[in-house]
Design a protein around this nucleic acid. Structure first.
Lengths: 373, 373
DNA sequence: GTGAAAGCGCTAACAG
DNA sequence: CTGTTAGCGCTTTCAC
């Protein structure tokens, strides 16, 4: 008494013997209703003028009418299967910033990156998104690997987690177009990466201070600093030397926060009396603002301050901070452009791109009328 | 002298006469190298124990070995095509917050939503993401429509743009599982939407003030207020009345910003001398903080303030603001759960869900030890 | 234990 | 001008 799920009294087309798929609106269905073949329907609905040219207006109208009535849309997966390159690429970004209340704003950067990517994606190209995070699970890694190799035409990854890095490199080696945005260790990515030009960041900050005529510079960096901060520092010192300005560094101990940090900065400022400061991190800039408040220093006139990635950090009555940073929107755009270029050329590598920094003017260090340099 | 792109001296399998697809690593290839049929390879690589049981260990090892060596991953699009429900769903979020510097932080919310969605997605299920925005183009709308109906098993949309709304409703009518998160006009979405319970937001804020023993309440809302703010207001008044507290409203004119806004609030505070305030928007809360600074009022002791969605807005030396809001991560999770439930049950509608608000404690209004209620 | 073959929805080459 | 058909990569019956 086997039934096999076959629908009784139902015109069974073909010999398929499993439960009928939810009656999807397929091209075949549109063609059937319009009394044309699938080819005709396909060609007409493709919309290309050279295709439309060969059909009678009447046929065109009929097919379009039925397609609209049925709410037909081409199945992108079926199309992707056939196409030389699918309509999908993988995008791996970071999630979970909210758990740490201090880091919540980074979520905004991820959004910006995503938006930059989607805005620069070719028409009818879509990102399949996966989120990676600090405590990424094995299963998640597997899932990301699946999508990276599961038919997409390329992958954009923001700061790959160590667990992911291995398979990422394997993908590249196998010739899959891949772009890494803001890798943690830029030195490990001489190819296929996009990052800020940190040396230029330091230079631009320096030029801003130079333009204000600053002569006693103080730079704030983390005690444990990575390649990025070292480059910023070198770029900055480079300008200071050419400017004939004194240049000194204050290292901020890791883990130290407001108000100890503020006091530490204030103490140093009282000693050195700098007229120009470059804060390489958000907490450094915040501590400087707090120190100035304490010391009664008016930022922008007594002291020029340039920060990094702190443009948004403004709240009355504190002054807005002049910031040198990179647009994540642009970074996303650049990543997308590179990905497209690779798929078009068939290459799977490109020399790592360093994006020029941008200045977001704040009150702590006005930009000279003509800009810098 | 036609060549037709046929590769000379190359074993042409089948009669296909177009340029050979980039040699992908397909199941067939793995099968060939392993000297088994595609069926065998498929079953073995599916990993299901009941399938593996019927093969010799030797065969299994061989197939696995070659799959690994070739870097084989199943093409998810091909799988999706065959499956009852595809592995993909559409997720439409908002982008372009950065253009307006004041609104940049909203990008963080979008991220949180995305993360909530992906974290609650079933294994091996991926979002195909599209970004919509304020000045969305025709082409973009079309693109989003394509993906919404192009084979995904459902769609999650955050605050659909008017241009999108029509096709969204059509999708729902046609039975495609769809979830709207935070619609602008909740009244228009008695079904298929997820939003905060704004009445509860007002109530919770009220209970916090009540717990502090406040007797003279002042509520700040926008002059042009929408359904959400009205509900917050009603929920709040409800508690005030039961508490026997006086309850009054100050309407903030649209477009007015700091410092005029601050002054307006300060003036009213000087007149009314409220001991409890409920600021329904970010700018209202910010203006209150500024007013207190001006008036020398110590928040948290002289005055209790509860805001909405302002938990993150903290910068020394201002006090952190106690905030009643909703977790966008949770909202994303709930949306995903609903979507999955709909696809499983075959339904395409559900009664709109109102999420309970959460409290993020700040210094402006401590939460009583046992919580509220 | 293993393989052949159908078919998911679509496109494009080719034939009429 | 329009239809037939092969095949994209995969899963799933069913037969040997």
């Amino acid at each position: 008494m086997r039934n096999n799920g076959r629908q009784a009294g139902f015109g069974v087309i073909g010999t398929m013997n499993r439960k009928p798929l939810k009656h999807r609106v397929t091209l075949a269905r549109v063609a059937r209703e319009s009394n044309v073949s699938v080819t005709t329907a396909s060609l007409i609905l493709s919309g290309r003028p050279e295709c439309l040219a060969q059909f009678q207006q009447q046929t065109i109208d009929r097919v379009r009418h039925h397609a609209k009535e049925l709410g037909y849309r081409a199945n992108l997966f079926a199309s992707s299967l056939l196409a030389e390159r699918s309509s999908f690429f993988a995008l791996v970004i970071q999630g979970g910033h909210t758990e740490d209340l201090r880091g919540w704003q980074y979520g905004a950067y991820e959004s910006e990156l995503l938006y930059g990517v989607t805005e620069h994606a070719p028409p009818d190209t879509y990102p399949v998104v996966a989120t990676s995070g600090p405590k990424i699970s094995e299963a998640r890694v597997h899932s990301i690997e699946r999508i990276m190799a599961g038919g997409v035409f390329g992958t954009i990854v923001r700061t790959p987690e160590p667990l992911l890095e291995k398979s990422l490199r394997e993908r590249i080696k196998r010739g899959y177009p891949t772009v890494v945005v803001f890798p943690d260790q830029l030195d490990d990515w001489p190819e296929n990466a996009i990052d800020v030009d940190n040396f230029a960041v330091g230079q631009v900050a320096g030029k801003l201070l130079a333009a204000r005529g600053c002569k006693r510079w103080l730079v704030l960096r983390d005690a444990e600093y990575h390649a990025g901060q070292r480059l910023r520092q070198e770029g900055n010192r480079d300008v200071a030397q050419r400017q004939g300005a004194s240049w000194d560094v204050l290292e901020l101990p890791v883990g130290s926060e407001s108000p100890e940090l503020d006091r530490m900065v204030a103490t140093r400022m009282r000693e050195d009396r700098p007229d120009g400061m470059f804060a390489m991190t958000l907490r450094a800039a915040a501590a400087t603002v707090a120190a100035c408040r304490e010391l009664g220093i008016v930022m922008g006139s007594d002291l020029a301050l340039v920060g990094c990635d702190v443009a948004y950090r403004f709240q009355a009555p504190d002054p807005s901070i002049t910031s040198v940073d990179v647009s994540w929107f642009e970074a996303g755009g650049e990543a997308m452009r590179r990905l497209v270029k690779m798929t078009e050329s068939g290459e799977s590598r490109f020399k790592t791109v360093l994006l020029p920094p941008r200045i977001i003017e704040g009150q702590t260090c006005p930009v000279p009328p003509g800009g810098i340099e």
